[in-house]
Computed example of a mutant assay.
Amino acid sequence: MPVLRFDNVSKQYPGGHAALAEVSFAVDAGEMLFVTGRSGAGKSTLLKLIQLAERPSRGAVLFDERNLARVRGGAIAAHRRNVGVVYQNHQLLMDRSVADNVALPLVLRGIKRGDAGKRVRSILDKLGLAARERALPSQLSAGEQQRVGIARAVVAEPALLIADEPTGNLDPALSTEIMALLAALPERGTSVLVASHDLGLVKRMKKRVLVLDQGRLVDDIAPEDLVDE
């Protein structure tokens, strides 16, 4: 069963700008894929619809086969707990330690402090950050900050992780490292959808690629059809 499905989704903003037009695709459980396209192609709008930061003008977005149009009020926060988000600029709390930043989704879920601490230490260890748990974000390198952002996004084991240009501010070596971390998540049950305009990196990953152009889904490329240039 798909974890996420877009069914003829269109999004029109006030003033007539069509950000998305009749977009349909599905993401299977345990799948990693990319969405790419030029700036303004609709990538960010697509991610906002998944998070319920925006609503479609037409069509349906389904998460675990539940139409998100029916998710209102307090249920919005519950939905967002099932969607981990990695941002380009980390959005870490600069006055809190690494461990406190990563624990935030667990605190919001009401998980006991002791249990949350164990899960935080486990994920920091997996991401090579065990020695940095008491550090403040300002004491970390850019790559370490991005890894903290990933740790926070996956510590609650969401069904889906979405990442918006997660390597946009990183050098090529760090970009490859971050993508490898994301690629390991489906084995643990989290599907991964990455928005990126770095075509070279996308091709090297050999994953399915959705191509947006002016709000339309113009291609859905299988991994075996990706050709290195």
Score class of each variant (00 low, 15 high):
G74R: 14
V202F: 03
E157L: 08
L174T: 15
V86T: 05
G149R: 02
Q12D: 11
A184L: 08
L182C: 04
I178G: 00
E31L: 10
A41C: 11
E157Y: 05
N82D: 14
L46T: 05
L185H: 01
L106M: 10
R58Y: 12
A53Y: 13
A163N: 01
A222C: 09
H197V: 09
H90F: 15
Q146V: 03
E177K: 03
L108I: 13
Y13S: 09
P186L: 12
S138T: 11
V98G: 00
E224L: 09
G16I: 14
V148G: 00
L174H: 11
A131T: 14
G168H: 06
R5I: 12
E144F: 04
L4N: 06
A99L: 07
A75R: 13
V218P: 11
L174Q: 14
P137K: 03
R152W: 05
A69K: 14
V9D: 02
G168Y: 07
Y13P: 00
I123S: 00
L161N: 01
S97Y: 08
A53N: 12
E177P: 00
N101H: 00
H90N: 13
L161D: 02
I123V: 13
A103L: 06
Q91T: 07
A78N: 09
L226M: 05
P137L: 04
S191T: 09
R113C: 08
M1A: 13
V218K: 13
D219Q: 13
L108E: 15
L185A: 08
E54H: 07
S141N: 11
T36C: 06
A130T: 09
N82C: 10
A99E: 13
L49Y: 04
R66I: 13
V86L: 10
I221W: 02
S24A: 07
V102Q: 02
M179G: 04
A159F: 06
L201G: 06
V85P: 04
P14Y: 14
V9E: 04
G143P: 01
A180W: 10
I221T: 10
G73K: 08
V3K: 01
D213P: 08
G200N: 14
R70M: 10
F25D: 04
A222T: 10
A184F: 05
I123W: 01
L199P: 04
I111M: 15
V71L: 12
A151F: 03
E54L: 10
L199F: 11
V71D: 08
L108G: 07
G30D: 11
R147T: 01
G200A: 14
P56W: 03
V9M: 12
N82I: 03
S196Y: 04
D164S: 02
E54T: 07
V102S: 03
D100P: 05
M205P: 01
R38P: 02
D198S: 09
N89G: 08
P186I: 10
A99S: 14
D125A: 15
M179Q: 08
V155K: 01
K118R: 15
G200S: 14
R38C: 06
R208Q: 04
K207N: 09
Q146N: 08
K203N: 13
S138K: 14
E54Q: 14
A142F: 06
G16F: 14
A153R: 04
L4T: 10
D225Q: 15
T45N: 07
G37K: 02
R109K: 15
Q146T: 05
K207L: 12
A29R: 11
T45W: 04
P105V: 06
G110H: 09
F6C: 09
L199I: 15
V61R: 03
L46V: 06
V86A: 03
L47V: 11
Q145C: 13
